[in-house]
């Protein structure tokens, strides 16, 4: 009877562990490629991975689609324990530890050389703030992971804290989290890619714009966009120069409340001097702050007189 009970307990325990393991994203190492425009805001020059006007990163790693990279939570039945045999198992334990504010567990997930820093964070005077913040990170999704600098780099998106990254070192068959002081542009640029997820520029539809405007005057330009939440960018045809103005549908500097329509205030003072100008407008799914060579070909010309 006693043996039977043990078998039953063992069965349930095994099943529970197995269920937890099945919730954790599968870890694969494949050849992957990510390419995107090099003109993305904040990208650092990376000549080794530049082809034409694009950054092309060919890596050994894994890219997740949609919710495939979702980290299981305790509510999903994940018990917070794994063999730490993949970065995703270790990451799943970390998220669970964050939510449980389990400092001992968090520390155990970091490698030895990172312990001093980890202790300073989670056992120092701001430890409670840190734990409170991390425990409210919400749902965590892995966007991609790749072999990086003798370790493994993961870019994740958290429900409440946005894009973040984690770095792993394989020690004695287990993936341990590690501190990283990174000077390589690749991880930064890839994180920017996931922040903006850039799509091709589109030509907006002009609804209204002033034909002429006084130098000290501000008037609205109204455009229809193809996608909700997109940005309208106004610029002169001078690559490398800052754009003149921009606004986001339903967000930054949008003066009307209709979706897929942006009313943008345009101050002629930005033109500095009187004259006839040809400006350009494009629709973008991310904010663009500097004019690049790719923009004009997709742009809508806007002729305006400043008097």
């Amino acid at each position: 009877m006693k043996r039977k009970i043990l078998i039953i307990i063992g069965f349930f325990a095994f099943s529970y562990y197995g269920i937890s393991q099945n919730l954790i994203p599968e870890f694969k190492t494949e050849s992957i490629e990510i390419r995107f425009t090099k003109y993305l805001n904040g990208c650092m020059p990376d000549p080794e991975n530049t082809i034409g006007n694009e950054y092309v990163y060919r890596l050994k790693g894994q890219i997740f689609k949609d919710n495939d990279g979702r980290i299981p939570s305790l509510q999903d039945g994940f018990n917070g324990k794994t063999a730490q045999s993949t970065p995703w198992e270790t990451l799943s334990e970390l998220v669970a530890a964050y939510k449980a504010k389990d400092v001992k567990k968090i520390k155990s997930l970091y490698n030895k050389s990172s312990q001093a820093k980890v202790s300073a964070i989670f056992e120092g005077e701001n430890a409670q703030n840190a734990l409170n913040t991390l425990s409210q990170c919400g749902e965590v999704k892995i966007l991609m992971g790749f072999e990086y600098q003798n370790g493994y780099y993961a870019i994740v998106e958290t429900e409440n804290l946005g894009i973040n990254s984690n770095y792993f070192i394989l020690e004695k068959g287990k993936y341990k989290l590690s501190a990283l002081a990174d000077k390589n542009p690749a991880s930064w640029n890839l994180a920017l890619y996931w922040k903006f997820r850039p799509k091709e520029f589109l030509k907006p539809v002009k609804i209204s714009k002033p034909d002429s405007i006084a130098l000290n005057e501000t008037r609205n330009m109204v455009f229809r966009l193809s996608s909700q939440g997109s940005w309208i960018i106004i610029f002169r045809d001078k690559a490398g120069e800052p754009v003149l103005s921009y606004a986001q549908d339903g967000g930054y500097r949008d003066n009307d409340n209709k979706w897929q329509q942006v009313s943008l205030s345009f101050g002629a003072a930005n033109m500095i001097a009187k004259g006839n100008y040809t400006l350009y407008a494009i629709e973008s799914n991310y904010p663009v702050q500097v004019v690049n060579d790719e923009m004009k070909s997709k742009a809508l010309p806007i002729i305006i007189k400043v008097y």
């Binding site: 650092m44 820093k117 984690n166 501190a179 001097a273």
Partner: peptide, 19 residues
């Protein structure tokens, strides 16, 4: 809190002269 740090150096624009 510094567990991951990144050195940053990226261009914003290449120069601007007003009319």
């Amino acid at each position: 809190w510094g567990l991951t740090s990144h050195s940053v150096d990226y261009p914003l624009w290449s120069g601007y002269t007003t009319p």
